[in-house]
């Protein structure tokens, strides 16, 4: 299967991040791990581009962030832990429903059954 990269992901990244956070709170690197695992290794995302998306979601109140407590044995800058808010869960449900409708319509056209 061809890698899914850059522009193809951009429009969906917010929903993907919300879906990753549905499984529980996580920091940026963990969110990427979840996305990569769920995408069977086909998602190729520049890791830095996750953060503008997270900040946008945070500004919109769809996720909440808090600095992690210091972890034993880990030095350096702190991690920020993100969790889904109720508003984020609603947005995710809406995003899923829109995606299903989109996939049904576009899938029908691409299969030549429309």
């Amino acid at each position: 299967m061809a890698d899914i990269v850059g522009d193809k992901l951009r429009g969906h990244l917010q929903d993907l991040v919300l879906a990753a956070l549905e499984r529980g709170e996580a920091h940026g690197l963990e969110i990427l791990r979840r996305l990569e695992a769920a995408g069977d290794g086909s998602l190729r995302l520049k890791e830095g581009s996750l953060y503008p998306t997270l900040y946008r979601l945070e500004s919109a109140g769809l996720v909440k962030a808090a600095w992690a407590e210091a972890t034993k044995g880990r030095r350096g800058p702190r991690r920020r832990i993100y969790r889904l808010t109720a508003k984020g869960a609603t947005a995710l449900a809406r995003g899923r429903s829109e995606w299903r409708a989109f996939a049904r319509v576009i899938g029908g056209i691409m299969r030549g059954t429309a």
Binding site: L29, G48, Y51, P77, R80
Partner: peptide
């Protein structure tokens, strides 16, 4: 942003 990017 600086601290978070740096950590990652």
């Amino acid at each position: 942003i600086r601290e978070e990017l740096s950590a990652h």
